[in-house]
Structure formats: structure tokens, C-alpha cells
Amino acid sequence: MIGVSRESIIKALSTRNLIIIITVAFGILPVLLGFNRYYVYLATQVVIFTSMVLAWNIIGGYAGQLDLAAAAYMGLGGAITGLLLCYYHLTPWIGMIVGALAAVGLAVAIGYPTFRYGLREVWYALSTISLVLILQRIYWLIYGTTEEYISEYIPYRWSVLYLRFDRYEPYYYLGVAILLVTLWVNITIRRSKLGYYLRAISEDEDAAEALGIDVRRYKLYALMIYAAIVGLVGGLYITTTGIITYRLFDPDYSLSVAVAGIIGGLGSIPGALIAGVILKTVEEYLRATFGAVILGLHLMIYGILLVAVSVSKPEGLAAIFTYIEKKLLKKGSG
């Protein structure tokens, strides 16, 4: 009986309190970083990346589709937000929504035929990563290699309407807000019918179909939610960096998101969260220290980590949490 109450304590720890702990931790982080401009900028990048890993968890973790199009949806959301801001002075508050909706539209346009004709596994992965490259080339054809600087069009030093700030804290906190919403979406889906259905689909599509699940439709739902969040994040990304370029559609970024999701443990919320934070921090650290010396070192480290995880703990970081949880439970009842 003690074991049961302990279990409920752990359960409480892993959901409601988890969110409170995360909120507080992210909330005070800039203070701990001494409001250092560069560190807060990096923290913003970490928060943006982690939001994307959590969003990826819905399609990659729950639904089990190896999606590599994160940079396509992010780039589309970002480019739309940025270009509307530069050329039409449309506030990013609306631009981000338009960008997210465009990403959802793209997801439907790509996802419907893909799922209709049953593209699975490696074929799905290949088709999604090529989507990133296709969008990159399309952007290139239209706008060339010129980089648009938002600061040249919107010369405000501090404007809430246009999301122009001369510090990174506002962007950081916006990122944290999106991260928390994404976290909430993840938890809600996991406990919902959609979550059960997606997990069934990732286990066996035929068995899921035989249980009355419209596999294509539910996969498309997962893809749309993921694209919406990633498109929104893209809008924030563009206002943070302030540069609109074809480099937004970066296949490396797509890979990093999926790798973090896999290392975190497919379908695990804390796994995705922690893997996102750690990997991006390490990546940025490596880039800052060795970036100029050895190009792409962080990608090599990713590769090594991926091999290490797949060999030793195929369930990713999530397996470590389960292990700790089990240990705690044993102590309680023993």
C-alpha cells in the first residue's frame, strides 16, 4: 500500500509539478546568466530548439513517423513572418499565425498524398527531408541569396508591436511561453484518444486499422499539430535573429531535431525536453569553442551519441527515467 502512495507521488512529480519546476527553472535562467546578452541569446536558441523537439515528439514519437521536415515548416513560418514584416509592415503577432497556418497547409498538401499512398519508414524520411531542400531552392529562385535584415525595414529599438527589442530577454520569454504550450499539448495528447490512437499506429498500422482507427487521418492530425507549432516557432526564430535568408531551410536543423527526439526516447515527454536542452547547449558550446577550427564537429558528436544510444539504450533517455522510477518504487515497498 505504501508502494501505491509512492507511485502516486511520483506520478504527481512527473506531471503537474514537472511543469511548475520547468516554468520556474526557465523563468529564472536569465537571472542566473546575469542577463548576459550572448548567453541569453543562446538560451533563446535552446528554448526554440527544445520546443521543436517537443513538437516533433507528436509526429515522430507518438505517431512513429520519422519526419525530417522540421526545417521546412520552420523556414516557411519564419520566411512568411519575416517577409510580411519587412515588405508590408505586418506585425509578427499576426505574421506568426499566418506562418503557422501556411505550415499546416503545407503539411496537409504533403501529408495527404504521402499517407494516402502509404509512404512509410525510410521512404517517408527521404520524402520529408527533400521537402526542406525543395523549399530552399524555391526560396532561392524567388529571392536569390540576398539576406533581408528586419532592422533595415523596421528601425525601432524597442517595439512590442513589431517585436523589435535591443535585448534578447523578450524573445527568450516568448520562446518559453511557446515551449510551455507545446509541453501542455504533448501532455494533453498523451492522455487523449488521439494519443492512444497515435501510439497504436506507431506500434502496428494494420492492427490499428483493424481496431477501427482511420490511420491516415490520425497521422495527418499529428502532422498538422506538429507543423503548426514548428511554423509558429519559425516566426519567433526569425524575429529573434532578424535575418531572412534561404539558409532558414536547413536540412541539418531538421536532422538535429529528429536526432534529439530519438535520443530522448520516442514518445517520452521528459526525454524530449531534456535531450533538446542538453544537445542544443552542447552543440552551441562546441560551435563556439571549436566551430572555427573543426566545421561540423557537433554533427559528428550527434552521430556518436546516436550510435551510443542505439547500442546501449534503444529506448533513449526515457529508459533511464523509468529505471530511476523503478528504483524509487522498490525502496518504497521494500
Binding site: E203, D204, A207
Partner: peptide, 25 residues
């Protein structure tokens, strides 16, 4: 409804979760 000659189990889910998927219909 049908069952499978070659079982198609949900290995990551518990038995209760797997059957809940069916009941959600």
C-alpha cells in the same frame, strides 16, 4: 472485428492500454 494469425502486438503499451485503444471506438 478480427484477430491476427501472426500476432501484431502493441509492445510498448500495457495490455490495458492496448485494449483501451479498441474500446475507444
Amino acid at each position: 472485428a478480427r484477430t491476427w494469425q501472426k500476432v501484431k502486438p502493441f509492445v510498448k503499451m500495457t495490455a490495458l492500454e492496448a485494449v483501451t485503444v479498441g474500446a475507444l471506438l
